[in-house]
Design a protein around this nucleic acid. Sequence first.
RNA 1: CGGGGCGUGGCGCAGCCCGGUAGCGCGCCUGCUUUGGGAGCAGGAGGUCGCCGGUUCGAAUCCGGCCGCCCCGACCA
Length: 490
Amino acid sequence: MGRKAQKKGLTPRSEDFSAWYNEVVQQAELADYSPVRGSMVIRPWGYGIWENMQRALDDMFKASGHQNAYFPLLIPMSFIEREKEHVEGFKPELAVVTHAGGKELEEPYVVRPTSETIIYAMYAKWVQSYRDLPILLNQWANVMRWERRTRLFLRTAEFLWQEGHTAHATEAEAEEETLKILGIYRSFMEDWMAMPPLTGRKSESEKFAGAVRSYACEALMQDNKALQAGTSHMLGQNFARQFGLTFQSREGREEYAWNTSWGVSTRLVGGLVMTHGDDVGVVVPPKLAPTQVMVVPIGRSDEQWAVVSEAADRVVAALGDAGVRAAADKRRHLSPGAKFFEWERKGVPVRVEIGPRDVGRGEVVVVRRVTAPGEDRKVGVEEGRAVAEMSARLEALQGELLDAARSRREAATHRGEVSSVEELGALLDEGVGFVHSGWSGDPAVEERVKEATKATIRVIPGEEFRSATTPVHCAGGGKARMEVVWARAY
RNA sequence: CGGGGCGUGGCGCAGCCCGGUAGCGCGCCUGCUUUGGGAGCAGGAGGUCGCCGGUUCGAAUCCGGCCGCCCCGACCA
């Protein structure tokens, strides 16, 4: 590579992961900084990925009995203040509307940081009988949290998400819903994002403000920091009590409903980037790629161009018929090489090159965004066969990305006894991402470990993620009563 | 909120120390030649030097104040 190519390259991940992330997000045109502090503009390529995420999740929510609805952006201040832990958790980052219509408002409105309060206030209005339950609603919305420090996709002042809010007649049913959603999130992250998370319960200090219990999906990024990628909360009757969400049971008693809330956000796009990206750019898993196959025609003269251009159209159409999202890059002012770099940076899973030589042979050149060691980067394939095999090729790539991510996670996971804070810190400094250890359940220990190592308890792992033998030693002291997973987190 | 850095054509930067013509690369426009890994040549467009004030004959440059952004930390479901 010449000097030019170097200059246009990204900072390598190994040199400065944070700089790499910022550069890749902007250069792949996923998002850009906006004139509003801490708020980003999501550009078409990034928004296309989000739209595909939305579609997949929305289908899963619908398939499990949920419906979409929409609640207001503005919430009366008094609503937020009603649940004590909730207000303590969110007050510092609220944006407040005090004036409207040229006058000061009698009661300020907050721009929703999350919608539990207004939604359960409405549920209270709609529910009288146990026959009105459960209510299983979701909304796709924007929310605002005035974070002190923001990062594109990972923590922005305004972000897009979905928030599910349900109300149930029994505690068991609400708990079941909470776990069902956690499972849906996990499936989505594995099957669509190729990002395999750990799942489990949050410790008391990490749980959602106002929840009884929080569950989370925690994914490991390439810099071995954990990213909380989705949360599902069992709210108990906390909000129901504050908003008068009661119902009459079959037995004729008045009871408080049991609530759950759960969400994933545009943060997932950041997680996707940090899970699969390389020093060339983003790598988008085929199932989420707005364009799965980019066809690049290559031709010199107008005569050649006419031929390759027609072939490109033919291939794009055939791929479309085969259910593959394909497009042709027919810009003539850019050289083929420039297009290769651009689409690789954006992470299009497969590129098809069609030049005069290929057309002459009835072939196309197929290039995968990532190749296994030893595998040919570019392969000439007969045109019809390339089209026919494309879906399988994309599926294989999807599977390989998941396998690779899972291997990275396992390679960066420490299981076994950790008997001191120093040992825990040393492991993390050596590049371990997830450290399993015992924990007494004492918040003071958790705090001490955080102080010393910057690591927090990401999850109290679900059964599947627990070690074969429960650790006896406790990283921060005391007697181990459960297994936990520590990591430094975003 | 603490520490650090940066504000100069669309983007990335130099110029500032030592005051006097705003400059470079990329990008953009036009034309021709090109196109299998970031095209070449020629011509061209584009800048209230973050804002306010001060010093000076004269300020991108010196002085004071302010604002904004980025990074690290603290904080944060």
